[in-house]
Each structure stands twice: as C-alpha cells, then as structure tokens.
C-alpha cells in the first residue's frame, strides 16, 4: 500500500534523520528504500516528497564527491581551525 503524501514526507525525513552522521543517502537510495517498504508507491511521489523537504529547508543537498540528502548542518570547510 502506498503512503499518503504527508506521511511519505515524514517517512523520508525520519530516514534521513536516522542516517545522519552514519551514512550519506542519495536520492536514489531513498527511493529504493521507500519502494522496498511500499512497492506500490509511485516514484514521482518520492521525488516530490524529497523536493518538499528540500524546499522547506528541513533537508539540504550536500556534495561530498557525490550529491546527497542530509539534515542541515554546519559546513566543515567553513570552520576556522
């Protein structure tokens, strides 16, 4: 069964939150994880749920050799040592 839009957004947010600091998730990793749990979920729903998290600022895209989705955090390179 597919998740309603709001629940899908929260499910993805929880996934990103749980992975924070442990594993960097790409958009495709999130899509695959959602589809494993909810095989009927349309791919486009997942795409736009990620967009909603990014547009609201709850998640951000990061680039560390590849592009990932993470919770906002301080830029390591910006720190003064």
């Amino acid at each position: 069964m597919a998740l309603p839009k709001d629940e899908l957004v929260e499910r993805i947010y929880k996934m990103v939150e749980a992975a924070q600091g442990k594993k960097q998730l790409k958009a495709k990793d999130i899509e695959k994880a959602v589809l494993k749990e909810y095989p009927d979920q349309p791919r486009n729903d997942i795409k736009f749920a990620i967009k909603e998290l990014i547009d609201s600022g709850r998640c951000v895209y990061t680039y560390f050799g590849g592009s990932y989705i993470e919770l906002p955090h301080e830029e390591g390179a910006a720190k003064k040592f």
Binding site: K51, I54, D55, G57, V60, Y61, T62, Y63, F64, S67, P72, H73, E75, G76, A77, A78, K80
Partner: peptide
C-alpha cells in the same frame, strides 16, 4: 582552497560550489 559541500540556494542542490580559504 577547501572544498565546501553544503552551501547553496534554497530548493536547489546544484550550481553553487563551496570554496573556502584555509588562510582566512
């Protein structure tokens, strides 16, 4: 130069490449 990985504009994940000096 240090390579940043987070800076950007809201909603986008492309087009901004973070750069910082290690001698600020």
């Amino acid at each position: 130069w240090k390579h940043g990985g987070i800076v950007g504009v809201l909603g986008y994940g492309s087009g901004i490449i973070g750069r910082y000096s290690d001698l600020p």
